[in-house]
Every structure is written in C-alpha cells, then in structure tokens.
Amino acid sequence: MNFGFGILRGLMVTMGHFIGTFVEDFKWIGKRYYTPEGVAHRSSKNASGIFTVQYPEEKLPVPEEFRFIPFLLYEEGPDGEQQDRCTSCGICAKVCPPQCIWIVRTEDPDTGRPVPEPVEFYIDIDICMNCGYCAEYCPFDAIKMDHQYELASYDRHSAHIYNKEKLSMSVDYYAQIRPTNYRREEDIRIAKEEEKAAKAAARAAAKE
C-alpha cells in the first residue's frame, strides 16, 4: 500500500473545493452575493464554491408550500370591516394532532343558537407541530399556514398563545404568499358559485 497516497488524494479534493470558491467568485464578480440570482445559483444543481446564504442580509426564498404557524383568513368588506371565513365548525381542532387549537363558538343572544363565527380562536404555538393538517382539512379555506418564521421572543407566557386578533390575516396576504394555491381555490369556488347560479337560473326558468 502506498502509504499516504489516499490521504493526498483526499486533500486534493479539499484543495479543489478551496480553489473552486475563488474561481466561482471570480466568474460572478460582485453579483454572487446579495442578489436573488446569486442565491438561486447557490441552491441549484450547479452550486459550487461558497455555499453560504448570508442571512439576515439575504434570505433563502421560501417555497410556496412552506408551512410554519397557522393563521386565520378574513375577507375585507366594502367598509373595511373584517369578515372571518371561519365558521367554527371545529374540524381543525379535531384534526390537530397535538390538540393545540381552542375554538369558542358564538351564540345568537336572542335565539341561543350557534352562529357560524368564532368569538375566540386560540393556538398555543408552544404545542403546535406545524403539520399543516388544519389548513389541509379546513373545508372553508379559512385557516392556512404562514411563511413567517422569524418569531423568536423573550417571553413565552404572555406571547405564545395566539388569539384571534393575532392570528387573523387578510385574504390578500394569503394570495400574496401562496399565489398558486389561492388561484386554484378561487377557481374551484367560482366554479361552484357559477354552478349554483346556473341551477338557480334553471329553477327560476322552470317555474316560469
């Protein structure tokens, strides 16, 4: 056995990586860092040289399906009032594996019957496992997973049970972070509404 030859061969590999960083930097002069193309290149199949993403100055682009903490969607009415999409049906609370969702239902003060809107909605983010089930199984597309991950805090006791106010986000925000999903769900909803309208029209026509 040529003793030491294997080590030398290995060192050649590290040397190759070392030189590669300069070659790569030279090829890109000035454009490799702090540009979106640079970040994309560094996570592509051709990545070589320095692999580091310089967080916080530059951040890795978050893929659309990325999930962190859930949030609730509201639609903005004409006067800027918030209409929750949530109907407090409780499927998210039932399907939540660590059971971190609490929903307080509303009752009509006159009739005493439940109103399809939650009074309060709590998520304990110290229990939440970011599995995305609530968003996946919600029949009203009322709860979705957020992309925001920079949530570190100094105090959990006051801050880490999120209430409805903290969880609520507008539909526009959702459309912005998950455009493909938003478009798909909107298409389905519009198709359903059209179908309903067509049926209603057909019924009206049949009556006449």
Partner: peptide
Amino acid sequence: VKPFANRWPGGQVYR
C-alpha cells in the same frame, strides 16, 4: 382519546 371535547366545542383555553 382525541379529539378532546375541551378544544371544540368546549373552547376552554388554558395551559
């Protein structure tokens, strides 16, 4: 067994 009635329809939040 899960789901716990306390989460929904209970809605009684506590640690």
